[in-house]
Design a protein around this nucleic acid. Sequence first.
DNA 1: ATATGGCCCTGGTTGC
DNA 2: TGCAACCAGGGCCATA
Length: 286
Amino acid sequence: MPELPEVETIARGVHQRLLGDRIVEAWFGSHKEPFKTPSARQAKGLEGRAILAVHRTGKHIVCELSAASGSLQCHPNAGLADEPTAQWIVHLGMTGRLLVSTPDAPQAPHTHARLTLASGRELRFVDPRRFGRLEFRDLSRGPGFTAPGVDPLTITAEDFAQLFHRRRLPIKAALLNQNLLSGVGNIYADESLFRARIRPRRLSGRLTRAELEALRLALSQVLEHAIRLGGSSVSDYVDADGVRGFFQLEHCVYLRAGLPCPLCQTPIRRILLAGRGTHYCPICQR
DNA sequence: ATATGGCCCTGGTTGC
DNA sequence: TGCAACCAGGGCCATA
């Protein structure tokens, strides 16, 4: 389940590889629309545009695109002068993958979109469960994509405290709410609460200022650490080159029900909270 | 403002 | 061994 570190890893990988490349042809599968923009309109909108930058906003991958050109060449100075005029926004849902492939690579089942690039490579979107979403935005007709919540890597102590105080819901549910922070999912909610030694069921508004600051620090540290390790491969997550991450080896509680807590050896407990499997140490987290 | 449950969807696991 | 029920959960929606 791609969360902030996995999405960041993929966005960086795609940026590094495809900067300056140009979309020659866009193919979309014909199953019932999993997309925000109808497939035909996306394909038409994407073709001919150069990739100026690829970055992460919340759990979304945003590709900044140039104006369309009839030329099939790559765009050697991409990003230096051009202002983007369109965006392609990818949300991976639970099982989505965005892969940079060579054209001869066999097409994985559940490939829903394939962008052929001027370099000959392809950018493929694969998503077995179809929880992912693809969207095309023409920036001459509307605003660029913005996440509803604040990025957990850059939020200040003051803003973090403001965001969570006086809310009457469990802190884990608040962490998962993308309208507050954008980018935190089930893995990093559980892992940051463990590192901050806070029980997931504690009400957000009942946390002290010190606890909230410990949580903010734990969250940003765990996210940064996970980005350095290329994310967590718990199900079948891979980056833009199909390479697995390593942060799952650093998990202290997530999917470790019954296994010993790394600090006190007490078996990790699993409960259901906000409809999500939730893992914590009953001794270390208060 | 918050809570709950359903929906989407497939693949892996469990149970008979 | 084979098949079906069940579970996983991010985001969104309707309802309470």
